[in-house]
Design a protein around this nucleic acid. Sequence first.
DNA 1: AAAAAAT
Length: 609
Amino acid sequence: MNPYDNRYSDPDSYRHRHHRSDLMGQKTPVVPTMIGPVPHGGGAGVPPPPSFAGRGGPPPVGGGYPAFERPSSGFSVGRGGGGGGRGFSGGRGSNFHGGDRRNDAGRGRGWNSGSGRGGGGGRGGRFGGGDPRRELDNIALPKQDFGDLVPFEKNLYFENPSIRAMSEHEVVTFRARREITVEGHDVPRPIRIFHEANFPDYCLQVIAKLGFVEPTPIQAQGWPMALKGRDLIGIAETGSGKTLAYLLPAFVHVAAQPRLVHGDGPIVLVLAPTRELAVQIQEEALKFGSKANIRSTCIYGGAPKGPQIRDLQRGVEIVIATPGRLIDMLGAQHVNLRRVTYLVLDEADRMLDMGFEPQIRKIVSQIRPDRQTLYWSATWPREVEALARHFLHNPYKVIIGSQDLKANQSIKQVVEVMMDLEKYKRLIKLLKEVMDGSRILIFMETKKGCDQVTRQLRMDGWAALSIHGDKNQAERDWVLAEFKSGRSPIMTATDVAARGLDVKDIKCVVNYDFPSSLEDYVHRIGRTGRAGARGTALTFFTESNAKFARDLIKILQEAGQIVPPSLSAMTRSAGSFGGNFRSRGRGGFGNRGMISGSNTVPLGAGRPW
DNA sequence: AAAAAAT
């Protein structure tokens, strides 16, 4: 009956396990991270909020976790703890009129939001809640002259002569069986075993050490393509080995280039949309790089610049970066991209959406045009295709699974239609059912909603932690580490955690709020069921999400999931094409129940927000 | 109307 394969349905059993003595008696006081529901609901008996001091982690500046005793005070979510001003009217200020920020005219590609903003300025909406600290558009980067380019080693693929090549027929069967679709001229055969691609020995050693048995489909086909030196669009579901699919060819690429000399920038540049993802990619790169004597560093915001600058100036072959800090570094001339010949856009459709695309353009303009560019994502929305092709030349394309937006098959998807006001109660019911110490990730639409639900959960005795972009990086790092280690098995998040994050054994993903696109839905639920494991995604679906009903049903059907009748019913009341009557009702209806409005009575017995 | 990305 229970769809969550709940072997430990009694929350008490979890509680007891967590109070075992192996958690006690350490030098620094260890706070139990989760104690299950507290009988009397209130503050007494609830553990204090996680103490950063006792964890060895960097103490976050801004706090962000309410004191259980005094939930109405000391709850500063703002960056740096200071003004606490955030949101739309607060201290951060919405400087729509801000100075001379130019509006790169004509950039009205709102593919992501789909909100049809009229002609003219296009990006206007961005400044509404904008962050005045982001002046990225104003950083002028040195004009690059590519006139004196020297050719570089590009095609590095050769088949291992000691291994019999597949026949044409075998290739067809191989691809069909793994749902590999390819496009492009001169597509190389996929490889069946690691040795077939002639990776250097150290790579094979690390692969063996990591226990990989055979290449995943995206690797089997992506490796030979990438090694050919050609541009590449790689689309494969999350958890399918995409990172290594571009990193190993990157190592081969680096090894084939002249060594770096003093003052040279990196040879490989990987761009990622969130800091955590960038860090995760570098961790992967380090596993291989240390053997190969290929250095890498991660350039991202929220962390001290000094060490990053030192790494860059010492010279690194591989840079993994989020766009903002990289542009900053480029502007300050701490690094140059003149030697980049292998460019990777990870979670590329996100990188090309409204907020990022100008930054990507700026960065790419610093890189020689004859570079090799690799575009990777789990989703390939129509809307970015033209834009993506702008950065790519005669690319190969490899898709694993169907062309359509498709969810990971090993995830059980449950969709429940409800009202906003029912969400919290349903969440608690779920937690009581499934909480056995394995990880549960809960997605919210907004940072504010994220904080509020987290806060309510903690007041109700569920020691949830939350991660989103208004928290300082130290806290984000700490929260993610707590979640990854299992010390804190409940994490609430905005879409900052939607893409690419690889956390083992997430048992259940909850879409507390439906995401703003079906692509995001697929990415979010892809946090569970990674690397072939099973997982469950529970989605709360409200009337305000009706416009997604049709497409969601498609995804459910394609993955062989149950379509609840209440969801089917919503396709009749609201078309998936624009202009349905509900979307006008937003504001009155849309936002209400999510424990978000200050006028809403919280479910946890009338505590002030 | 949202998130993310620099100080």
